[in-house]
Write a protein that binds this DNA or RNA. Structure first.
Lengths: 99, 99
DNA sequence: TTCATATTTCCAATATTATCGAAATAATGC
DNA sequence: GCATTATTTCGATAATATTGGAAATATGAA
């Protein structure tokens, strides 16, 4: 993972609504949740929810699939794992591995 | 960890300069690095570096100690671990643990 | 094809964040 | 106390993000 893509992912999560949306999707697993249901669940206008989902999607943190009229979002665990790894990369390398 | 403190930590990291500063401090371990040296290292005015270090400090991601005239910053690994844990909390719990 | 439902895009207003020069604060040595 | 070095705060400007109504797009059903 490159710095820019890490910044994108972190910026996507650095917003209260989006962090809660993402964490709910993390709970939901591969089943995911429809955009409209998320909108209802968080009491947020569809336009606002759509904006947040787009941010998470651009950051690669969620994936979407169409199911009939709904669009189902789910967490992208691979991207998440990459981000976590990036943040701890080379931990204490310049200190003889001592943290 | 609460949502608000996670948002603070993520927002602190969601900025290219700060993410690089933090990652350098992660490498440095407990030895850390002086504010002025960081300023020189990144070719950034002291006022700008100070602003970024304050953000990281407010988020609990770095700690500082005075050593004579210098202020030494180092990464706070505990806070980092808490953040990583928070992001993956209850992973797939609503899907029978299947991701 | 017409209607209802689901979601996204457009746009403008508002709010938040980043940058950095200049001035202020803090510690040390003479 | 005065000069030097290290860092932070202040304040103004510029850049970026958030919000949500209204209109546009896409799917499915009658």
């Amino acid at each position: 993972m490159k710095t820019k893509s890490a910044v994108n992912a972190l910026a996507a999560l650095a917003q209260e609504s989006r962090l809660e949306i993402f964490r709910l999707l993390v709970r939901k697993g591969s089943t995911g949740m429809a955009a409209g249901d998320l909108s209802t669940h968080f009491g947020m206008p569809p336009a606002t929810m759509s904006f947040h989902l787009k941010e998470l999607n651009n950051a690669g943190l969620v994936i979407s699939r169409r199911e009939s009229r709904s669009i189902i979002y789910s967490a992208n665990y691979e991207q998440m794992q990459q981000l976590l790894g990036f943040l701890m990369e080379n931990c204490c390398a310049d200190n003889g591995g001592k943290c």
